[in-house]
Design a protein around this nucleic acid. Sequence first.
DNA 1: GTGGTCTAGACCACA
DNA 2: GTGGTCTAGACCACA
Lengths: 119, 119, 119, 119
Amino acid sequence: MQFKQNETIYTQIEKYLKKRIFTGECAPGERLPAIREFAVLMKVNPNTIVKVYADLEQEELIFSERTNGKFVTDNIELLRVEKSKFIQNEVRDFLSSIKDMTENEQDIINYIRENYGNV
Amino acid sequence: MQFKQNETIYTQIEKYLKKRIFTGECAPGERLPAIREFAVLMKVNPNTIVKVYADLEQEELIFSERTNGKFVTDNIELLRVEKSKFIQNEVRDFLSSIKDMTENEQDIINYIRENYGNV
Amino acid sequence: MQFKQNETIYTQIEKYLKKRIFTGECAPGERLPAIREFAVLMKVNPNTIVKVYADLEQEELIFSERTNGKFVTDNIELLRVEKSKFIQNEVRDFLSSIKDMTENEQDIINYIRENYGNV
Amino acid sequence: MQFKQNETIYTQIEKYLKKRIFTGECAPGERLPAIREFAVLMKVNPNTIVKVYADLEQEELIFSERTNGKFVTDNIELLRVEKSKFIQNEVRDFLSSIKDMTENEQDIINYIRENYGNV
DNA sequence: GTGGTCTAGACCACA
DNA sequence: GTGGTCTAGACCACA
């Protein structure tokens, strides 16, 4: 994974992991990669992953089993709600970033249509 | 202005200023606020504004007149191109952040419609 | 048994076992559960119980008979003294943790009265 | 400060700091010691203090001003509530640790009276 | 000077 | 092997 500057590494990994959880690539109840393993994969220090996991645990998206690893929550309802919040957040951030430079709703939708195929 | 954490202040001010330039609130050829004045307005240290102006000058969106201050470029064509790039960037960042969690183009457009009025 | 974080499991089991010994639930001279059995009951690794028993043996609260198992001491006087020490310890730890935030002795006693029924 | 084993350093510092906040030794709105300064005082690594401050900030007992330091909340009502919770917690932990080894409420109160002067 | 992030790496409890 | 804590210390953004 290639990290942007101007956004902290842990934030980027957190977003990445959340998206995997929300899309079900990391399924409810599934074991997450071990801290050290994930750190190697991401080419970061284990402590950075410790922070990522701690933050997601705080939000109850994942939970710990002592010495056994970290697991995606199996609270489907919570996942549904958090996913919805996450998306709404992204949408609103986007809209407020771009609104002033566009004419109206349709203008933005056109941009979406033009670029949807290219990402 | 309220700053987010996890993104540097100067980046946030740069975006803010670019948007004012692209929307014409800061018109082509217009004088920008003096560093100290802008710093007071934004409640940041003057050094932060120095960096912002330097970065925008680097991108040729603004230029210096020695002792006279900083001015928005009057190269309309450059403004048009940069604005377009800026918007496209935002659109693509948004799309790639959200694509995996949505079904299709229409799905995203619905989110836009739902939230357009609330930002 | 539900373990707290921020305190090691073996410490928590040690306290639990001591209390059973001091209350006589594990009577003087009585045989303690076998390591494996106790480990299963507590849902911990046998090594953890090995450590617990070793520590209590160190304090002479329990003793080994080679292949026959571990037994609660039958030194009643020692039990009396250790129980008393244990309680005094708990009381003093509690008092020093809370003293600065309370007005006086009576204040603490009121807290005891208020909460005695709810634990 | 002398740290106990079997309880993490950061937990002990957190409790220490909370108590200072609840007693008003660190008054509402007051600036807390700088991370590095406090680390030197406590003879621990700055990162440990970072964690302590982060945890208390999470609980809204303290707040950050970028590059200016950390401050005790001035939300008096929140302080009152959290102090009350903290004390109740300590009292209940104490009671459940000692209840089985005592006869009744009065028995415990006697222990409090006996030891109050000696802590 | 102040906090935030990150790395390298050690040591521990527990399985 | 797995996570948790802690240290030493670097580098950055910001004041």
